[in-house]
Design a protein around this nucleic acid. Structure first.
Lengths: 191, 191
DNA sequence: CTAAAAAGAGACAGACCTGTCTCATCACAT
DNA sequence: ATGTGATGAGACAGGTCTGTCTCTTTTTAG
């Protein structure tokens, strides 16, 4: 059975796997590589995770959790909706500039696990839906719910596209910011 | 050496590989699967393509070529710039609705071949840069070049994001259209 | 201190991977 | 018809993959 959750090994495996998956992709990163980098025995990993796929889901959910907590803190700040959206773009801009940026792990997971019934696919959907509904909630402070829904979807698309461009070495986050402003202005404008 | 180009086998392999890569990803689709589906001998494939990676590049360039030809025809139509952009969104909307839609093959290739020096990475960059510069050229009919560059980048991000959303079963192309209109309006507006 | 839980170490199976090689067969042009 | 290039068929090598098993060692808890 899975060992007790008190062990710190489990989280260590998740974080090591995260780094390797990010750099090398999912199929291309083997279990042997993960256990070597994490410096654990193979059986230790398989006692914590029933399969590689389950480990991948765990890694994705771990990252989703971290991002969600960041959004939690943002929600409680006493700034305008526009400023909150700007913050999200700030985070992404810093991320794009970071040394070990390799694109969006969730988008990559979607590329390698395209079956909608696969647990990995569902983990990706959870993260993207989370960000979208968070942005929608933020925008509902300055526009009606239906418009907020559409604008949040548009912002998410911009962010995903900006991430892809950044991975290709063509930073366009500034253009994404301008486009986001135009979208929010149009959505919070007159009927 | 590679057989003469008069053979139709080569193109047949490219198209079969395209279908399989689209459905199953690149690393997860083996050579054996490709030659079985294409109904050719393994040596026939390796006589035409020196390696699997080179085949992948060929598949991507083949799709880039098809899309470029579509953009060529669009360029010659006597419609407004706004209508041309609308056409591009129309294509994507039909694509998203098609039965065997599995997301953007180029985005998937980027996910699996993240090394900027890899030929596959470069093939992806060619396609995305191509679409962006085409849209930029279209927009330069209705706005100054610097604004057209920024707007084209924003439109490309929207399209990439819309493709990702569509793959997750959440069609937001309508919202992307509205956002695109807002972006173009803002960019062709007053200084 | 002792007993139970967790982890280490490594062999192992069975499958899959890319790419090479050989030899037989086919199509086609001169 | 004859020779040449393209293809078919399948064995093969050498490696990697996931996941299992066993045995030993370490850590932890009472």
């Amino acid at each position: 059975m899975t060992p007790s959750p008190s062990s710190g090994k489990r989280q260590h495996v998740v974080e090591t796997a995260y780094t390797l998956f990010k750099q090398g992709g999912f199929h291309a990163t083997g279990i042997d590589r993960i256990i070597a980098e994490a410096d654990i025995a193979k059986m230790t990993m398989y006692r914590h995770f029933p399969s590689k796929d389950e480990l991948i889901v765990e890694v994705l959910d771990y990252r989703t959790g971290r991002f969600d907590r960041q959004l939690d803190r943002l929600e409680q700040e006493g700034i305008t909706a526009e400023q909150k959206i700007e913050r999200i773009f700030d985070w992404h801009e810093r991320w794009f500039r970071s040394a070990d940026f390799h694109g969006c792990l969730f988008a990559h997971a979607l590329a390698e696990f395209g079956d909608p019934g696969h647990p990995v696919f569902k983990a990706v959907a959870r993260q993207k839906n989370g960000l979208r509904s968070r942005m929608q909630a933020i925008l509902e402070d300055v526009m009606p719910p239906d418009r907020a829904a559409g604008a949040a979807a548009a912002l998410l698309m911009l962010i995903e596209g900006a991430t892809l461009m950044a991975q290709m070495g063509q930073p366009a986050i500034g253009n994404a910011r301008k486009a986001a402003a135009a979208i929010i202005a149009a959505a919070s404008g007159p009927l």
